[in-house]
Nucleic acid binder design. Structure first.
Lengths: 226, 226
DNA sequence: CGGCACCTTGAGTATCCTCAAGAGAGGTGG
DNA sequence: CCACCTCTCTTGAGGATACTCAAGGTGCCG
């Protein structure tokens, strides 16, 4: 079996539905007029499934979300991780093309797509357009990362990207597991683990406790090859 | 150096500029109001370079185009191939994020982006939006393909995608070289060649003359693994 | 016919995957 | 507070796959 974790009953998949909770004091996103309810999701809880009607847009307040598709053989490709501030669920068609799950306890703002009328408001339309272009850019970046041949290169790209999105602090706090990273980078969990160890031995990073990585030589990380 | 304009070992790159030719009888694209000049490009001619001002949008009339980026070490990642009917060059920022070159003798329709005013015309805006979402989808598909681990899988995905875009005819006519395919799939040219030979030996395809592939067992191609 | 670009094939090696077992970390209950 | 369990991560050994280097074949064009 070639896959991530296990397959038959997809253990990462819990069919529990989202239960948006009316916020007493709804937060507003000026740019997108994303005014809606907030939802609190426990770890591994599903936000939406692949193929479900795409009538909601989400913004991460805290926590993190994985967007992924499951291939025919049960493998999982994580297309993107959504971090605080990110907006996701924007899909052209009637249904979501990818599934989404909370990586950890997560708070989202939920907005109905129909309320973001694309032609009702030119400003909102432009914001949506910019959002789509931004995600397009991210998709291209991922393709570039996956096109890189060695595990070290992919890992380096991933860490640098994550840092730039989470903000440069002393220590990078990974919201996802090794398996998630593996499924994102097209590697196995063992290779991810070994690569990190190797990078630590080379002095490129310092790892403390599996979820915490300190980047020490960004130059070398970005230049990793072979 | 991110602009791919002058990389030492980039033999595929010819710095010849595009010279749009006023068409006596401009073709019109109703959906996008893409009314502009046509350009005829010889093989390997550059359409635009990475980092150049992004003020034009293109539609392929005939021929084919590769959109790519050059990595720091000189490797090339081809993000997408643009085939007849495809529109490309739509970029959010001020400059193109990828470069584009003709794969073979190619005819394009060229339109200034400023003429496609995003807020001047709701219909055009929506068309642009849909276009962006479509490219987003393609980016995700590429990520899915590159995430697949074996060369056979990637090759199978690639061939099926290409066929679906070129139309199902008896024989698939590849507009790109083995090297282009390799740079698209994150493989080497030797692996591409070997994989195709192997697929032929397995009865999955029939190859005649390097640029012509007949898909014989689509089911098996899509299900390729290990 | 020769030159050139592209493609194929071979041999050897590096990288990554698979299978398997052990080590931490966190939570639960006695 | 500690034993125990589970989940996750790490590490090891062996094998499969893709890369590198190199040579030879094919087709096209002058």
């Amino acid at each position: 079996m070639r896959t991530s974790s296990n397959l038959d009953p997809a253990p990462w998949r819990r069919p529990t539905p989202v239960t948006p909770v009316k916020s007493p004091r709804p937060e507003a996103d000026a740019a997108l007029r994303l005014i809606g309810a907030t939802a609190h999701l426990a770890r591994d809880r599903e936000v939406f499934g692949e193929g479900e009607p795409a009538d909601q847009v989400f913004k991460v307040v805290s926590g993190a979300v994985r967007g992924f598709r499951v291939l025919a053989d049960g493998r999982r490709q994580i297309c993107d991780f959504y971090l605080p501030g990110d907006i996701f669920g924007l899909d052209l068609g009637e249904t979501y093309r990818i599934a989404a799950e909370a990586l950890c306890d997560t708070v989202l703002i939920v907005a109905r797509r129909s309320l973001l009328g694309e032609d009702r408001d030119p400003a909102a339309a432009r914001a949506l357009f910019n959002l789509a272009m931004e995600q397009l850019r991210r998709g291209q970046e991922l393709a570039l990362t996956l096109g890189r041949r060695s595990a070290r290169e992919r890992m380096g790209c991933f860490l640098l990207d994550l840092e730039s999105r989470l903000g440069e602090s002393a220590c990078l706090d990974l919201p996802m597991s090794r398996q998630d990273i593996a499924d994102h980078l097209g590697l196995t969990i063992e290779t991810v683990s070994r690569t990190l160890t190797q990078m630590q031995n080379a002095g490129l990073v310092r790892i403390s406790g599996a979820r915490s990585v300190e980047l020490r030589q960004r130059q070398a990380l970005s230049g990793l090859r072979a």
